[in-house]
Design a protein around this nucleic acid. Sequence first.
DNA 1: GTGTTTGCAAAGTGTTTGCAATTTA
DNA 2: TAAATTGCAAACACTTTGCAAACAC
Lengths: 146, 146
Amino acid sequence: MARIAPLASSNLRPYGPALERLRTVGLRPTRQRLALAKLLFDGADRHITAEILHGEALRARVRVSLATVYNTLHQFTDAGLLREIVVDSERSYFDTNNSNHHHLFDEGARRLHDIPETDVRLDSLPPLPEGMEVSRVDVIVRIRKA
Amino acid sequence: MARIAPLASSNLRPYGPALERLRTVGLRPTRQRLALAKLLFDGADRHITAEILHGEALRARVRVSLATVYNTLHQFTDAGLLREIVVDSERSYFDTNNSNHHHLFDEGARRLHDIPETDVRLDSLPPLPEGMEVSRVDVIVRIRKA
DNA sequence: GTGTTTGCAAAGTGTTTGCAATTTA
DNA sequence: TAAATTGCAAACACTTTGCAAACAC
């Protein structure tokens, strides 16, 4: 039986960030997950939808189904690699920057941009119901053509 | 042909808030819109989904379809009577309080609560792209069981 | 080998739409 | 009566799921 070349070796620095990331969170580095991680994390922070990521993967000659893209985005989110940003009732956005920060949302172009956390100050919070804690504070500045 | 009693007269103070509101924004006061407006605006501020409002209408013996509830919520939103709050990718919430304020979102119960605007201070904004303006700033404090 | 992951297509969910029938003004 | 509104069911867009085939370890 023929020996198969190691997974996507031509595309991937050995132990590059994508592979490391998957190892770290305990997700098997399958061809699809590696390719998606590479698209997501190699380079600047990104705000992406499943549809867009799927398109990029296909363009990069990575055979992956949209269903797998959705599943992968959720696995990455559960693993803490991504953060889901709820700004648009039509579709889900995922942010590769999971440090604390906020967002600018262009309502026309439906595009997200980061705002440093330090640009926003929360003075106080109303009393939380008994036994509840803050899981996250999202600030969304919605912008549109003047 | 029998004379029909005036619209929902038994349920409605003449020129009550619901009717007035519809008149003000130029929406015909149909039976359905009046009933929905009454459910929405008589009483305290509310955060509601189409499904819930539809349920309440049926329980109040108002015959109205879910499609009409959706359409009406959007008409009310376009007219400035409601504000749509995007917090949950699964469903849309509408807020009867359209003054400036922010929200607490209970991720477990999927329930929204108001936060006074004064509890939040935005120090600065990043430079907006040329020709863009802020349409709205949403602050969402997500809470969960501790 | 064994358990995990994938792809596909089918099902699911919330929401919108087309159009005839009804209602409002 | 003319124009707006409604209800229904069908269509929609996005997302999830069931299961057999493919793959990682």
